[in-house]
Amino acid sequence: MAILDPRVLELIETLVAARLDWLAFELIEGIRLGRLPDEPEEALAAARQSVRSNAQPKARGEPHVLLEEPKPIPADEQVEWAAAYVEERLDAALEQLQASLETLDFIVEATIERQDPQDVPTQASGKTDQDVTLVLLDLEGERKSSRDDVAGARDNFSTLHAALAEWTTRARGQATT
């Protein structure tokens, strides 16, 4: 059974205070699950290839029992694992958002005025310098993110990296219990 290193709680509290509860839950879940053996890329590639072929899948009928158990993340590795997880997770999300907004701008700029005679005309207001803004909508309202916002957030990433590195060094020097 996985045991949560109490030093990680400090980071979890910080995530919650920064309104990143979902990331705190992911950290706890990641430690709870431990490290599972991965399916090799060769097996995944073979599966993709088989799916794209027209071959009828054959019932194998012989159960393949997986004997490998998940390996818990050792307590003395959890601090570094957690810091790396937070940094990588946010960095990936910002990188994906930046790429997405660039593609959305590209698509809009390449859109011709009327795709089809049946298309509903819109009130075009002439050329604008405005980029596409992502809006996440729910009952609480709208959360807007533009390319400038993403660039601003990414500019601050080195500060996050340094702060996490400093915490990792400090936490490593503390006793685990």
């Binding site: 400090e10 980071l11 509290e13 910080t14 995530l15 205070a17 920064a18 309104r19 990143l20 509860d21 979902w22 990331l23 997770r89 946010l90 999300a93 910002l94 994906q96 958002l97 997405s100 992502l134 996440l136 729910d138 959360r143 807007k144 993110s145 916002d149 993403v150 601003g152 957030a153 601050n156 990433f157 500060t159 996050l160 340094a162 702060a163 996490l164 400093e166 915490w167």
Partner: peptide, 30 residues
């Protein structure tokens, strides 16, 4: 609490508020 980490996170989440939504990062991936 880790003040330096929190300050950096607040700046990032303050710029991209999508990230403070429970499904924000998931929606970004989609």
């Amino acid at each position: 609490m880790i003040p330096a980490v929190q300050t950096a996170l607040n700046t990032i989440v303050g710029r991209v508020t999508t990230l403070d939504h429970a499904s924000g990062a998931g929606r970004i991936f989609e």
